[in-house]
Design a protein around this nucleic acid. Structure first.
Length: 944
RNA sequence: GCAGGGAUAGCAAAGCUUGGUCAAAUGCGCUAGGUUCAGGGCCUAGUCCCGUAGGGGUUCGAGAGUUCAAAUCUCUCUCCCUGCACCA
C-alpha cells in the first residue's frame, strides 16, 4: 500500500487545528516553553531550515506526551540590512535576486512589489509561516509577531534603557570597512563580488629622519623583527607626502595618507620626492641604529604606508630586493643581515639566513619570481610564528608570538609606533558603488560584554544550564571568555532607533536577545488592542519584574487594568522551564548574547534553563548552497517527499550536533519502512489471541526495554539513538517475531500502539493515521508517552534469542565454509544436532569471571562434583582472555532447550537443513558435545 | 594569526567521557542469488586477508609511551574543517 502523505497530512493538520491542540492555556501541569531562533525573512525557506525548527518541535511534542503544558510559539526577524538589500536589488531589476525568488515559485507580479522592504518582509514571512504549517510544527500561531512592528521596538527600547542604566553601553572607536562616497559602513553584502573586507591591525613603526624632525612610517605585521632592520625601502615611482599625523611629521605615500585620515588626524603639509627620501638616513626607534634608505622594487603605494622597514634575514622580499640592488651595482652599504628569531626544529640550519633558506627551498634553483617570494614569505611567517624564539635583545628566549605583543606595546608606549588598520585582502575591495573600501575608525556605541562582573554572573548561571553535550558546554564557556565589546548601532537598515543616537538603528542581533519573553503575552496585547505608544517602560517593568502595580501602570499607559494584570500572569506562568533551540552557528553571537541579557535584566527564576544546538543539513553529500544550485525549497520538498519522511530524515538520523544527510534514497527507505508498519497494522486482523509463548515474552521484553532506552535517550536529547530503538529496531523486531512464528494479536497490538505514540513526535501525521487505523479515537499527539514495565524486561528471554540467532548464524557459516571445499562440494548436510551446555559450565565461567584464577575456580565447592579433567579442560580455553571475561546470565537448561525447540522451524528455514535436534550436553552422544559453552551451544552437523 | 572541532574499513558515519563483550553499529556503494522482477523497488547472503566446523592473522592519520589489555588514556608530529563581530 502506498501512503499518500499530502492527503493524510493535510487531513490531520485540519483536525488538530479544529481541536486547538497546540494552543495551550495555563493549567495545573508544569509549563514548558520551547522557542527556536526566529527565522530571518529575506529569502523563503529551504528544506535545510527544517532541522532547527523540527528539532524544537520534536522536543515540544515529546514534552507534551510527557504531560507537560507545552507552549511553542514562533515569530519572524526582519531588522537590519538584508531585506533592504533585497528590496533595493528588486528595484534595480537585478536578475540574480529575481531568479532566486522565482525558484521559490513567487509570481513575478509579487516580486515586483518587493521593492518595498516592508512588503517584502511580510510577503516572505507569510511564506515561512506556511512552510512551518505544512511541516507539521506544533506552533501556537496566536502569538506570532515580526521584529519590525512598533510594539517590538517598544520592548527593545525598554531593554536598552535598562542596559544603559546598568552602565553596559559604552562609546568607543571601532574599525569598519567604509565607503567614502556613500559615507557608510560596508559589510560583505555591500561590496562588489561580495568580497568580505578583511580588516587587520598593523603596527606603524616610526623611524626618525636623522637630519629633520620627520619620521618614516613603516607598516608591519612583524614588529618583533625590528632589531633586524638593515634599511628602509621606498618606491621610486611613488608619490610621497609629508603629513602631520597625531602630532608628528611623517613621510608616507599619498594614498596611505588619505586612507589613514579615516583613522587618525592627518594633515598633509607638502609632498616629497622619492629621490629626496633616498638621500636620508633613518634611526631605528628600538636600538637607535642609523640605517640607509634604499629603493625597493616591490614597494607599492596602496599597501601599508608605501614605506617598508627591511629585515632581509626574515623577509624574503627584503632579501631579494637587496640582492637585486647589489647585482645592478647600486651602492648598497655593507650591512649585517641580523637574525633576531631562531627556529628550533628538525632540519633547520642554525647558521643560515632564514629568508634565503626558505627561498631556495621553494625556488629550487629557479629565479626568484614574485610568486616564489610570496610563498616563501608565507611559509617563513608561519614557521617562525609557530616555532620561532627571539634570539636577540631584550626579549631573547621568548617565543616569537609572545614577543610580538611585548615589542609592539613597548614601541607604542615610547612613541616609536602607532596602531593602524588596513584591509588584508589580496586585491582592493570595492563598494557596490565603485569606490574603493577603506578602514574607518568610527566613534560608536557598544554593549560591553567584556564587563568582568557581568561575565561572572553569566558564568555562575551557566553552571546551572543544560547544554546536552560537553563540547557545546565548553564552546559556550570559551565564547564567554572571548566576547568583548559588541557594536550595537548601525547607520542603515530596518529596526528600532537607537535611543542614544536616534539617527541610527539598533544592530539586528542586539535587538533580539529577549524577544521570546513577548510570546507569553503578545496575544493579550492584541486582544486588548494595545497600541505601541501605550507600551511605556513601566508596563515592561511590571510585566517582567513585577515592579509597580497594575493600577498605576494602567492609568499612566491607558492600557486596560485587566490586560496589564493578565500580561504579568502569562509571563509569570510561561516564562520558566525554557528550552532554546538554534543552529550551532548562533553560539558565537545570538545564544551567548541571549544568556548575557537575561542574566542582567531578569531575576533568577526567569533565566535560560537549557540550550539545544543542532547541526545543519547536507543535500546528497554536499552543503546546500546557491552556488551549487542544490537548494530545495521547503514547500517543494514537503510536496515531493511528505513532511513526515522529511522530518525523520532531517531531525533524527544524525547526532544532534552533527549535520544530517538528506538523500532521496534515505527518504525512499523511510517511506518503505512506514509501509511495513501499515502492513503490520493490517495483519492484526488475521491474528488471534492465544496463550503466550517464548517469542511473545521476548516481544514484551523488547518492547519494554525499548521504551526504557528510548525514554532515557529522549531525555538527554539523543534523538538518533531513541529512534534507532523506536523505529528501525521495532521494524526488525516485528520481522523477527513473525519469522519465529509469533502471531498473537494482543501482543502485536500493544507493541504497535506504544511504538506509534513514541513515533508521533517525529512523524506526527503518520502516527496519527496509524493510531486511528488501530481503532483509536483520541489524538495520538496528546496521548501519554508509554511507561515501561521493568518486570516485563526479561533478560533471560532476550539472551536466549541472541543465542539462537548467533547459533543459527554459526551453522550457516560452517555449512558455507564446508561446502566451499572440493571434497565436500557435492555433499549436503542432512542433520544438525544443537547441544546446549551443562549448567555447571555457567557456574564455572562466572566463577572465572569473578576470581580471575583457574585454580581458585577448580577449588569451588559448587563445582566439586564435576570431573576434574573436564572442568580443567573447559576452563583452560578461557585462559587467554581471562581478564576480559564478564559474568553471563544464569539460564535454566529447560528454558534454553525450549527456546531452541520453539525455533526449530526458523532454524530449518534459515539453514535449509530439515533434520534438527536439540539436546543437553550430558544427554548427547556427539563427540562435539563438550565444546558447548553457556553462550555458545555446540553444533554437530552430519553430512550425507 | 586567535579560538574551537576533526582524522575509523570503497564512501559516509557511530564508537571513544566510564580501556577489555570491537574486525568495529548503521547507511550508501559493490557482488551473487531470489522475487509473475520495468535496467526501479523489495528480499536473502557476502563485501580487510587467510582458512575443507563456528577459527586464525593484520587494522581504526603517523610515531612513541602507559597497561595483563588501547580505535578508546598520555605525549609528539602531520594534515583537514569551522568561526572570528557590523554579518543575520
Amino acid at each position: 500500500m502506498t501512503i499518500n502523505y499530502g492527503e493524510l497530512e493535510e487531513r490531520w493538520r485540519k483536525a488538530w487545528n479544529e481541536a486547538k491542540v497546540y494552543e495551550p492555556e495555563p493549567n495545573d501541569n508544569e509549563p514548558v516553553f520551547v522557542t527556536a531562533a526566529f527565522p530571518y525573512v529575506n529569502t523563503p525557506q529551504h528544506i535545510g531550515h527544517l532541522r532547527t525548527y523540527g528539532t524544537a518541535d520534536v522536543y515540544a511534542r515529546y514534552m507534551r506526551l510527557r504531560g507537560k503544558n507545552v507552549l511553542f510559539p514562533m515569530g519572524f526577524h526582519a531588522t537590519g540590512t538584508p531585506i533592504l538589500a533585497v528590496a533595493k536589488r528588486v528595484l534595480k531589476g537585478d536578475k540574480d535576486i529575481i531568479d532566486t525568488l522565482m525558484d521559490f515559485d513567487i509570481p513575478i507580479e509579487d516580486i515586483k512589489k518587493m521593492s518595498d522592504p516592508v512588503f517584502c518582509a511580510e510577503y516572505i514571512m507569510h511564506m515561512h509561516q506556511e512552510g512551518f504549517v505544512i511541516s507539521g510544527l506544533s506552533i501556537d500561531w496566536r502569538r506570532k509577531f515580526i521584529s519590525i512592528e512598533p510594539i517590538f521596538s517598544k520592548m527593545v527600547e525598554w531593554q536598552f534603557g535598562k542596559l544603559n542604566d546598568a552602565g553596559m553601553l559604552k562609546k568607543g572607536l571601532h574599525p569598519v570597512g567604509w565607503c567614502r562616497n556613500e559615507n557608510n559602513a560596508v559589510g560583505q553584502h555591500d561590496t562588489k563580488g561580495d568580497a568580505e573586507p578583511e580588516i587587520e591591525a598593523l603596527t606603524a613603526v616610526k623611524f626618525k629622519d636623522r637630519d629633520t624632525d620627520a619620521y618614516f612610517v613603516c607598516a608591519t605585521y612583524r614588529p618583533e623583527t625590528i632589531d633586524g632592520v638593515t634599511n628602509i625601502f621606498v618606491g621610486e615611482h611613488i608619490d610621497y607626502v609629508i603629513a602631520e599625523v597625531g602630532g608628528s611629521k611623517c613621510y608616507l605615500s599619498k594614498h596611505a595618507a588619505e586612507k589613514l585620515s579615516f583613522q587618525k588626524d592627518v594633515m598633509v603639509i607638502g609632498s616629497i620626492d622619492a629621490g629626496e627620501l633616498l638621500k636620508r638616513r633613518a634611526i631605528n626607534p628600538s636600538n637607535g641604529e642609523t640605517v640607509p634608505v634604499l629603493p625597493g622594487y616591490f614597494v607599492e603605494h596602496n599597501i601599508g604606508t608605501g614605506i617598508v622597514m627591511s629585515v632581509p634575514a626574515h623577509a624574503p622580499f627584503d632579501y631579494v630586493a637587496l640582492e637585486n640592488l647589489k647585482r645592478k651595482g647600486y651602492p648598497v652599504p655593507a650591512m649585517e643581515y641580523r637574525k633576531v628569531v631562531e627556529v628550533h626544529k628538525d632540519g633547520q640550519d642554525a647558521d643560515a639566513i632564514p629568508a634565503l633558506t626558505q627561498l631556495e627551498m621553494i625556488g629550487k634553483g629557479k629565479e626568484f619570481t614574485d610568486d616564489i617570494v610570496e610563498e616563501a614569505t608565507k611559509n617563513l611567517y608561519r614557521l617562525e610564528s609557530r616555532w620561532g624564539v627571539i634570539s636577540y635583545g631584550k626579549y631573547k628566549g621568548k617565543s616569537e608570538a609572545d614577543a610580538r605583543e611585548l615589542i609592539k606595546t613597548d614601541l607604542v608606549s615610547t612613541g616609536g609606533a602607532f596602531e593602524m588598520y588596513d584591509l588584508a585582502n589580496k586585491v582592493p575591495v570595492f563598494c557596490r558603488c565603485g569606490t574603493e573600501v577603506v578602514v574607518k575608525l568610527v566613534d560608536q556605541w557598544f554593549i560591553n560584554y567584556g564587563d568582568a562582573s557581568w561575565k561572572e554572573k553569566v558564568r555562575t548561571h551557566m553552571a546551572n544550564m543544560r547544554f546536552f553535550t560537553q563540547s557545546n558546554a565548553n564552546t559556550f564557556s570559551k565564547v564567554v571568555d572571548w566576547i568583548e565589546m559588541r557594536a550595537t548601532e548601525r547607520a542603515q537598515g530596518l529596526g528600532t532607533r537607537f535611543p542614544l543616537n536616534p539617527e541610527h538603528i539598533i544592530e539586528p542581533l542586539s535587538d533580539s536577545t529577549i524577544y521570546m519573553t513577548m510570546y507569553t503575552y503578545i496575544n493579550v496585547l492584541r486582544e486588548a488592542k494595545v497600541s505601541a505608544d501605550q507600551l511605556k517602560p513601566e508596563f515592561f517593568e511590571y510585566v517582567y519584574l513585577e515592579k509597580g502595580d497594575p493600577d498605576a501602570v494602567s492609568s499612566s499607559t491607558g492600557i486596560d487594568r485587566m490586560a496589564v494584570k493578565k500580561c504579568r500572569e502569562m509571563f509569570d506562568y510561561w516564562y520558566k522551564n525554557t528550552s532554546r533551540h538554534s543552529g550551532s552557528d548562533l553560539i558565537y553571537n545570538h545564544l551567548t548574547m541571549y544568556i548575557f541579557n537575561h542574566v542582567l535584566l531578569f531575576d533568577k527564576t526567569r533565566l535560560p534553563n537549557q540550550i539545544v544546538v543542532n547541526g545543519l543539513v547536507n543535500y546528497e553529500g554536499k552543503k546546500m548552497s546557491k552556488s551549487l544550485g542544490n537548494i530545495v525549497p521547503l514547500k517543494k520538498g514537503v510536496a515531493k517527499y511528505g513532511a513526515d519522511p522529511l522530518r525523520f530524515i532531517e531531525i533524527v538520523t544524525a547526532d544532534l550536533n552533527t549535520d544530517t544527510e538528506f538523500s532521496e534514497k534515505g527518504v525512499a527507505s523511510i517511506q518503505a519502512k512506514n509501509e511495513i508498519i501499515v502492513n503490520a497494522v493490517s495483519s492484526l486482523q488475521e491474528m488471534k489471541t492465544q496463550e503466550l509463548t517464548h517469542i511473545d515474552y521476548w516481544m514484551y521484553s523488547r518492547l519494554n526495554s525499548k521504551i526504557k532506552a528510548a525514554t532515557e535517550h529522549m531525555d538527554s536529547m539523543n534523538f538518533k539513538e531513541a529512534y534507532l530503538e523506536i523505529y528501525y529496531n521495532s521494524i526488525n523486531e516485528l520481522k523477527r517475531y513473525a519469522d519465529h512464528g509469533g502471531s498473537n494479536g494482543i501482543v502485536v497490538r500493544e507493541f504497535l500502539e506504544k511504538v506509534t505514540v513514541m513515533l508521533s513526535p517525529v512523524m506526527p501525521h503518520f502516527a496519527e493515521e496509524v493510531w486511528h487505523m488501530l481503532g483509536k479515537t483520541t489524538f495520538v499527539v496528546v496521548e501519554p508517552w508509554p511507561e515501561f514495565d521493568e518486570s516485563a524486561i526479561n533478560i533471560t528471554e532476550e539472551t536466549i534469542a541472541e543465542i539462537i540467532d548467533a547459533t543459527t548464524q554459526d551453522i550457516k557459516g560452517v555449512i558455507d565454509m564446508r561446502s566451499k571445499s572440493d571434497s565436500n562440494r557435492d555433499k549436503r548436510p542432512i542433520a544438525i544436532e544443537i547441544i546446549v551446555a551443562d549448567q555447571w559450565k555457567t557456574t564455572a565461567l562466572n566463577g572465572l569471571a569473578k576470581e580471575k584464577s583457574i585454580s581458585k575456580v577448580m577449588d569451588l565447592d559448587e563445582l566439586s562434583g564435576i570431573e576434574r579433567q573436564r572442568l580443567s579442560k573447559f576452563l583452560s580455553q578461557f585462559a587467554k582472555k581471562i581478564n576480559a571475561l564478564v559474568p553471563v546470565p544464569q539460564i535454566a537448561e529447560d528454558a534454553i532447550l525450549n527456546g531452541f525447540r520453539d525455533s526449530i522451524q526458523y532454524i530449518e528455514a534459515k539453514t535449509g537443513v530439515g533434520n534438527i535436534t536439540v539436546s543437553l550436553e550430558n544427554m548427547s552422544h556427539s563427540n562435539r558435545a563438550e565444546r558447548a559453552t553457556p553462550q555458545m551451544p555446540a553444533i554437530d552437523i552430519r553430512w550425507e
